[in-house]
Amino acid sequence: MSAKNRETANVGAGNWKGLGMWAWILFRVAGVVLVFYLFAHIGVISSARLGGHHTMNTIFKTFDKTLFVLLDLLLVWAVLFHGLNGVRIVLMDLGIGITRHKAMFWACMAVAVVCFAFFAYSALNFIADKGGAWL
């Protein structure tokens, strides 16, 4: 591979248009969201040590409100999209499926959607059963 090809080979998933571009953009957006969530998550889990059991349980009660359950579902989608697109990237790096980018992408997304369905069923069931207030 020439130096010029090397330079552009792995930037923006190769093609700055179409499906590959969107996969790259959404992967990155989800990744950045998850970095912020990680630190928020560490903060919430440390509430038990900072404020005691009751403080933590009060925060968790808020997370049972409908709005938070739906936000949580959005978070699950961010994890699944980032994770399954990441599986595709790892497979590409191993040389698996490098001639069939689009098929690989949609296969990974199909797995993500099936997994998401389980979480969505669980979350929507919870809202229907015990949900009440939005906030």
């Binding site: 699950v76 994770g83 979480f119």
Partner: peptide, 25 residues
């Protein structure tokens, strides 16, 4: 990445599906 795929499967199923609505200290 591989560790997280495996780890999050366990983490999310045990919290979001098995213990949904029961999260507490």
């Amino acid at each position: 990445a591989v560790l997280l795929i495996v780890g999050f499967a366990s983490h999310l199923i045990s919290t979001h599906i098995m213990a949904i609505g029961e999260l507490s200290y």
